[in-house]
């Protein structure tokens, strides 16, 4: 597949949050402020790219040759969980400033289904090469960031709006997300 197509498709057409419903928990959880959404995006990008690279290599050089693809789920989640720990430790030592910015988001990432989802999709039926898989992971992270930042911007404005009492808080956030997803569906036309 064309690299350019992979990028466009992952960011806009098949946006990971708004079309594939992966990573909805952090999408709802940390999108109240624009600033925190950037932090979360940074941490997710970091882990998603590294995790997909590692799991891609494991899948193609360990699981497939030994015929133990059924171990995929357990191996992948363990890789992601250990990676998150590792990234946390390394970041603390190497760049305290970056750790300060991303630190609190890292533990949340283990249970972010976007990371595991992308790792599984990258070795899935699309038959990516290593470079394509890495690009796919990065593009999905950008898509995640785009959805999160847009949504956080909307929610910041919503705080000032006059919302019916029953709808205030979570319900109106979901409805807004629905409208955002509807807007993203418009991108399907360009594919």
């Amino acid at each position: 597949m064309d690299i350019f197509l992979i990028v466009i498709s992952a960011i806009f057409v098949n946006n990971i949050v708004l079309a594939k419903f992966l990573g909805v928990c952090p999408f709802m959880g940390v999108s109240t402020k624009l600033e925190t959404s950037f932090g979360m995006t940074g941490a997710v990008t970091f882990v998603m790219v590294i995790a997909t690279t590692v799991t891609f290599l494991i899948q193609n050089y360990i699981l497939v040759p030994f015929g133990i693809e059924f171990m995929q789920t357990i191996i992948f989640i363990l890789v992601i969980a250990s990676l998150v720990q590792l990234v946390e430790i390394v970041l603390k030592k190497v760049s305290p400033a970056l750790y300060q910015a991303l630190g609190i988001f890292l533990p949340l990432i283990t249970t972010n289904c976007a990371v595991l989802g992308v790792a599984i999709l990258a070795v899935g039926p699309a038959d990516f090469s290593l470079i394509e898989a890495v690009v796919y992971a990065a593009a999905n992270a950008v898509g995640f960031g785009l959805a999160l930042a847009t949504f956080a911007g909307l929610r910041e404005h919503m705080e000032l709006a006059n919302i019916p009492k029953g709808m205030a808080g979570i319900p109106i956030a979901f409805v807004t997300a629905g409208l955002l997803a509807l807007a993203f569906m418009g991108f399907a036309g360009i594919a």
Binding site: M1, N14, G124, P125, A126, D127, A188, A191
Partner: peptide
């Protein structure tokens, strides 16, 4: 086919 809307 790999031309599907959601991949293969």
């Amino acid at each position: 086919t790999d031309e599907g809307f959601s991949g293969r």
